[in-house]
Amino acid sequence: MRLTHVGGPTLLVEVAGRRLLTDPTFDPPGRHYSFGWGTGSTKTAGPALSPADVLPVDAVLLTHDHHADNLDDVGRALLAQVPVVVTTGSGARRLGAGARGLRPWQSTVLDGRGRPPLGVVATPARHGPPLSRPVVGDVVGFAVREPGRTDGVLWISGDTVAFGGLRQVAERLRVDVAVLHLGGVRFPVSGPVRYSMTGRQAAAVVRLTAPRVVVPVHHEGWSHFRQGREGAERDLAAAPEEVRRRVRWLEAGVPTHV
């Protein structure tokens, strides 16, 4: 498996002869985006690669469509050039054009051109505190299983805090590579409430799921992140050795085998 971190939550995954792209974000920096309910963010860093650098892709795995730090304008335009888009049920209704909507633990199969099928399972995610879903909207993670492999899955957490649903991931899946969305998001309007994981929360999730490799993403490049890479690294460095030895930070734009 080869991973290329484009920036933010955007990751090019090359696996089993396929090219998958997560949460496409390719807008240049400098613009402020509204997320609704008095929240918003300014993009402070651009992508390491352009859409032309990553296309063609076989599918987009979109954890949610309604926040611009996970699907911005250029990323949204890119969807028209992708055969399959897998996202939340509500997101699929908004996007139309045959997008496949999944609720947690529903699955779909990526097939075509005579290649073995690649299974994709939606996993639970909660983008904020308890009872926040009516405000923040639906989010999912994804588990991708290579054909013929029994030793684990690629798990993409999506934008989530550490909550009970992630225990289901540990119970139902054997995780090989975990891509964790961090950033410790907060907004002034809601005070100390977090909307994504800190490094400390990520360490707890790593101990729970025990992946072989952990790849942190979505921790820099936007003004609403309250913990960037430096803070996450500090938290993870303070974690037990069983956590520290699994973490692999990717250099943006550089294809990396994991």
Results as ranks from 00 to 15, higher is better:
V179R: 09
A125P: 07
V74I: 15
V214C: 01
N70R: 09
V217M: 07
E251T: 14
S50D: 14
F142A: 04
Y33K: 02
V193P: 00
P188E: 03
S50G: 15
D73N: 12
G89M: 04
G114K: 01
G96A: 07
G231N: 04
G101Y: 04
W155I: 02
P134T: 14
V54Q: 03
R103S: 15
G228Y: 00
V15C: 05
D65V: 14
L173H: 02
D65N: 15
G141T: 02
V54Y: 05
L110P: 08
G91M: 10
V13Y: 02
S196Q: 06
A162M: 08
V86P: 01
R145S: 11
T108N: 08
E242L: 10
L71Y: 08
V258I: 09
V213E: 03
H67W: 15
G8C: 08
T256V: 09
G165K: 08
G253R: 10
A204Q: 14
F35N: 03
G98Y: 09
R31V: 13
R194K: 14
A125D: 06
R19Q: 08
V214L: 04
P216R: 02
D65C: 15
A122H: 11
L62C: 13
V177S: 03
R234W: 05
A16S: 13
A52I: 10
A239S: 12
V144G: 04
G98S: 02
S190V: 15
A204F: 09
R115N: 08
P130K: 11
S90E: 15
A77I: 08
A178T: 00
G221W: 10
V136M: 10
V135A: 12
W105S: 04
R226G: 15
F225L: 06
P9R: 01
T22M: 04
V6T: 08
Q106A: 10
V247A: 07
R167M: 08
R234Y: 06
G75E: 05
L118M: 03
E242P: 06
L61C: 09
P116Y: 06
Q201Y: 05
V247M: 11
P134Y: 13
D138N: 11
R94T: 13
L208Q: 12
V169R: 02
V205Y: 03
R145C: 05
A45H: 11
L61E: 05
L180F: 12
R226N: 09
D23N: 15
L79C: 07
G137Q: 05
P117A: 12
L118H: 00
Y195F: 15
P134A: 13
G128K: 00
R174G: 04
G199A: 10
G141V: 09
V217R: 01
A99I: 07
R31E: 14
G128T: 01
L55T: 06
A237C: 02
R207N: 02
A80H: 11
E233R: 15
G137D: 04
V254T: 10
P104N: 05
V217E: 08
Q168F: 03
S223T: 14
P147L: 10
L62R: 09
A252F: 08
